[in-house]
Computed example of a mutant assay.
Amino acid sequence: MTVAIYLPAESKTEDWCRMMGDLMPDWTFHSMRNVPDPEAVTYCVVWRPQTGDMKAFPNLKAIVSIGAGIDHVLDDEELPDVPIIRTVGTDLTQRMKEYVALHVLRHHRAMPALQASQARGEWKPIVVPPAPQRRVGVMGLGNLGAEAARLLSVIGFDVVGWSRSPKEIEGVRTFSGSAGFGEFLDGTEILVNLLPLTEATRGILNADTFNRLKRGAAVINAARGPHMVDEDLLEALASGQIAAATLDVFHVEPLPSDHPFWSHPQITVTPHVASLIDAPTGSRIIARNLRTFEETGTVADLADARRGY
């Protein structure tokens, strides 16, 4: 089997080709920009491919997304009609759980305000309620969201969750669909977004959503940048409706150096590292999925392009 790999940085693409080749010596791996015979390619492994890249391969069997989301694949307006395989695994889930727990606890224990006091040389204790008296809402209850919600519940938070379709998670009160969205938001003090990016969820972090939260709430976005309406967040911060935000994803990445998020005192910016997939881990997961798909025609991590995830 021949596989074409694409990442925006050619040096990273070559690294992935070498690692995949070591794991699957009976397969052939090429950078998508240096494929000698397009007709030989049966799989593409990609992160943020360019429109029209994959239509060059007439015998394509499947596309592998280097990540849990497939929105970057679906952005290709000339995408071949083949199955799309997501890349998920316990390592990636663990990393997201760590990130969410870290920043929920930071906001819960008022760490941004304490750090600001330190910078001013002020001794200013802040008393916060115990975790069971703090409601945390998790939007998106797939693999990553469900595990993050479970962990927050174990820590002791009053956890609520919202998803497109009904879900049951031990220790978490769940809501679903448009009918349950408002009730999910009401009283939520820390909102965590882990939704897939679809046309239905694009721009969901907007003024209407912020205004339903408890005044002074915090927002954590570790899903996709286009979920956020940037101007609405800035206005909500200015009004005090939102007290603080942690943002890991953005409309344009890397975040432009002149973007107001960088210097905003109430915003923590992280460079899309919440569940960053490293090449050794990702290669092992993808190698397993490629072999399974080649042998059986399917894998557990097959995405549904119609739903967008």
Rank of each mutant, 00 (worst) to 15 (best):
P129N: 12
S117H: 14
P129S: 14
S163P: 03
Q118M: 14
R150P: 05
P130W: 06
R135E: 09
P129L: 14
H108N: 05
A146H: 02
I126K: 11
P132Y: 08
G140T: 02
F175I: 00
W123R: 07
I169E: 05
A116G: 11
G171L: 07
S165P: 03
R120S: 12
P125H: 07
P132G: 07
N143L: 15
R135T: 14
A116E: 14
G171C: 10
G145W: 04
G142P: 02
S153E: 06
E168N: 13
L105H: 07
F157W: 05
Q133V: 01
R135S: 13
Q115H: 15
P166C: 10
R106D: 15
R106V: 09
S176T: 07
L144S: 05
R95Y: 07
G145T: 02
K124F: 14
F175S: 01
P166S: 10
L102A: 14
I126P: 09
K124D: 13
M96G: 02
G156T: 03
V160S: 08
I155C: 10
D158T: 06
L151P: 01
H108G: 04
G161V: 02
H103V: 05
G177K: 06
E98Q: 13
S163D: 11
V154R: 12
A110T: 05
I155N: 02
P132V: 05
L152G: 02
A148F: 08
V100G: 02
V100C: 07
T174L: 10
I155R: 03
H107E: 06
P129Q: 12
A149L: 11
G177E: 07
P125D: 10
R120K: 15
R134D: 01
V104I: 09
V127S: 15
P130A: 10
L151D: 06
L141D: 01
V136Q: 06
H108Y: 09
P130D: 08
E147F: 07
L102Y: 10
R173C: 11
D158M: 10
G140K: 00
Q115P: 03
N143K: 09
P129T: 09
P132D: 09
P166H: 09
F175T: 00
G142Y: 08
G156D: 11
Y99E: 01
K124R: 15
R95K: 15
I126D: 13
P125A: 08
T174C: 15
Q115T: 12
V159I: 10
V138A: 03
S153T: 03
V172D: 04
G121T: 06
A119Q: 15
K167W: 12
V100W: 02
A116D: 12
I155A: 05
R135K: 15
E170D: 15
V138R: 00
G156L: 10
D158P: 08
F157I: 02
E98C: 12
Y99T: 02
H108S: 13
V154Q: 13
V172S: 06
Y99G: 02
A101H: 06
M139Q: 04
A119L: 14
P166G: 09
V136I: 11
K124V: 06
A149F: 12
V154E: 14
A131I: 03
G142L: 04
R95P: 01
D158A: 13
R109Y: 14
V100Y: 04
H107R: 05
V154F: 14
V127P: 02
V100M: 07
